[in-house]
């Protein structure tokens, strides 16, 4: 199959960008989207042109490195699929595909389709962890967790931090990401002691970045390659409101 690609090319952060049209020839329907781009890049390199920069690592849909917008949809048209796991068979011969980086003030473009997603890391740093001794691995089932809670925690923990939720959101909000990261710890016994501080600190960090504000449009849920539900956003909303009416953990401890 032959395709026309309109790709956002930008030399570096702050540099002006523009769309450049490329032809992808003799693409096998069995190749992945990134393999198709690899082939296009080999052609560009052979012609002495700069290859299209895109982020990738595992190519198994579990690392969260890859992701760009294909024809207005983050990670492309197939639900629950990262762009590395998207195969060319979902497209048709002659298709014209527009490839655009995530567009958000919080995600400055570094080059072509690569954006800086450090803002998500800073949200994690604000509370997406458990302050517990991490010696050797504890015995399995030393801390009991109900199966339902474990399942839901895993659903949230499936978040790979790719940023598609922000990219898809008409408000460029990071609520689904933050909700997933707050919830997967908040659903487990180990996450309980810091649950309320975590919700407050991570929301404050999220608000401190250049993200927008959620208006419940559900675009994030539809774009998420891990199909994380906005039910976790409801849970974050609930936790944050409850947390606001509780003293911080340090303050509560001082009162004893």
């Amino acid at each position: 199959m032959n395709l026309t690609l309109k790709v956002w090319r930008q030399k570096g952060a702050g540099a002006p960008g523009r769309f450049v049209t490329y032809e992808a020839r003799d693409v096998s329907p069995a190749t992945s989207f990134l393999e198709m781009l690899d082939a296009v890049n080999e052609g560009l390199i052979a012609r002495g042109e700069a290859p299209i920069a895109f982020e990738h690592d595992c190519r198994e849909g579990i690392c969260g490195s890859c992701g760009f917008v294909i024809n207005g949809v983050p990670h492309g048209p197939r639900r629950g699929t990262t762009v590395c796991q998207l195969h060319m068979r979902v497209f048709e011969d002659g298709d014209v595909l527009t490839l655009e980086p995530w567009r958000a003030r919080a995600f400055p473009i570094l080059k072509d389709l690569v954006v800086d997603r450090s803002a998500l890391d800073r949200i994690i740093q604000a509370g997406g962890f458990i302050s517990a001794p991490t010696g050797s691995a504890p015995d399995a089932n030393a801390i009991l967790a109900p199966k339902e809670d474990a399942e839901r925690a895993f659903d949230a923990a499936a978040c790979i931090g790719c940023g598609a939720c922000v990219a898809a959101c008409p408000n460029a909000s990071a609520m689904l990401f933050t909700a997933a990261k707050v919830s997967h710890l908040g659903l487990f016994p180990q996450g309980q002691p810091e649950r309320w501080d975590r919700a407050r600190d991570m929301v404050r960090a999220m608000d401190g970045e250049a993200f927008g504000s959620c208006t419940n449009m559900r675009e994030c849920e539809a774009a998420c390659p891990k199909e994380i539900s906005i039910a976790f956003i409801a849970r974050l909303n609930r936790d944050l409101v409850k947390a606001s009416f509780r003293p911080r953990r340090a303050a509560a401890a001082a009162g004893v």
Binding site: E100, R103, R105, S173, T215, M217, E219
Partner: peptide, 29 residues
């Protein structure tokens, strides 16, 4: 206040953006 934050959060609009899940009502609030 929330709207201004959201408008500032995407200074460069997508050339192409498809509404996959958002209803007309949600987009016109």
């Amino acid at each position: 206040q929330l709207t201004l934050t959201s408008w500032a959060a995407r200074p460069v609009a997508y050339t192409e953006k498809e509404a996959v899940a958002a209803t007309y009502a949600a987009r016109t609030m």
